[in-house]
């Protein structure tokens, strides 16, 4: 019984650490995609958030400030994506691909000129994100594993709720969903499609940046070129899985998070190859898709540049 509880604790702990980066990024992706702008540059935006978070933490020693700066750096790349895709009507997939080259490129480049290495030095525990109920529970106990994770690992679920609220309860949310379906209709009703899309794409960068910063400021404690690799794409997969809605993306990210928990448990038991275990989240996603989700209908105007007439 004790064993079971301890294991459950390890599982939840691993899930709480693996989910936030994906969920932040996935929520960001929802904003962008639902407003009608495909953003496969999430990966690059996460990477730039990760490196900025690490560098800020190393220079200021303030984890929360570093986290915020990670988001802002992501937002800056969101702005670039918005300019190119919204104002200049570029192919959104192409622009996102470019961001995925430039983001990691600049990230490692910064490390090289600042630290003369492809990695940053390790971030001191005091400069990382604060933990909830820090020091209240015995290290390794169930309570410690479940209640003493980085604050942001809990807050991200609040953020997810806020996103849901914004999407379905507020004026802006209605407008952004409408822009992704029928921008001409929005324009004819006096909604500024460009403005809505700019806000959404920048927001997607901001949230992706936060996700990236979580990785360096909580999970890994330093920036390395490989810290993000692939997570941005998994966030996108979670969004498609969740049919482009915040609540669906949450489900998708939780699948990955929980599978990650299972993975860390299974790795400890050392029975099956870690590589086979690592496939679990991806295989589970595929199976869930085939069994339950099926066709994911993207917003009608997603990916199509909107050109204002006048």
């Amino acid at each position: 019984m004790d064993m079971l509880i301890t294991n459950l604790g390890i599982l939840i702990n691993a899930a709480l650490i693996a989910t936030p980066p994906l969920l932040f990024a996935a929520l960001g992706s929802c904003f962008s995609e639902r407003s009608g702008v495909v953003n496969i540059g999430i990966e690059g935006m996460m990477t730039i958030g990760a490196v900025t978070g690490a560098i800020t933490a190393l220079t200021t020693g303030n984890g929360l400030l570093a986290f915020l700066c990670g988001g802002l750096a992501g937002a800056l790349f969101g702005l670039i994506h918005a300019i190119v895709c919204v104002s200049l009507h570029a192919d959104q997939t192409i622009a996102g691909t470019a961001i995925n080259f430039i983001g990691p490129g600049i990230a490692v480049f910064l490390c090289r000129i600042l630290y003369n290495s492809s990695d940053t030095p390790a971030i001191d525990a005091s400069a990382k994100l604060p933990k909830l109920f820090d020091g209240m529970f015995k290290s390794g106990s169930f309570a410690y594993n479940v209640f003493s994770v980085y604050i942001m690992a809990y807050l991200v679920f609040v953020v997810a709720w806020i996103c849901w609220f914004v999407f379905y309860k507020t004026r802006f949310g209605t407008h952004l969903r409408a822009c992704g379906e029928h921008p001409e209709a929005c324009e004819s009703l006096g909604i500024d499609v460009y403005k809505v899309r700019y806000i959404c794409v920048i927001l997607s960068g901001f949230l992706a940046g936060l996700g990236g910063a979580f990785v360096t400021l909580a999970t890994v404690s330093q920036f390395r070129p490989t810290v993000i690799v692939g997570q941005g794409f998994i966030a996108i997969a979670a969004v498609i899985f969740g049919k482009f809605s915040p609540e669906g993306a949450l489900k998708g990210c939780l699948i990955f998070g929980i599978c990650n928990g299972v993975k860390s448990l299974a790795t400890q038991s050392n029975i099956i190859s870690v590589n086979i275990i690592s496939m679990i989240p991806y295989v589970v996603t595929i199976i869930a898709l085939i069994a339950f989700v099926g066709r994911a209908n993207a917003p009608a105007a997603n990916g199509k540049p909107y050109i204002k007439s006048r």
Binding site: K169, T170, R171, T174, H182, A185, C186, S188, I191, A300
Partner: peptide, 30 residues
């Protein structure tokens, strides 16, 4: 203006379409 090709958001309700852009609000909630 009522456009020839309807300017309606397909997955939205009739009410949502009619009020789009001029939604009445209670606080920040529509």
């Amino acid at each position: 203006m009522v456009h020839q090709h309807f300017m309606l958001i397909q997955p939205f309700t009739v009410t949502d379409n009619i009020i789009l852009g001029v939604e009445p609000r209670k606080g920040i909630v529509v």
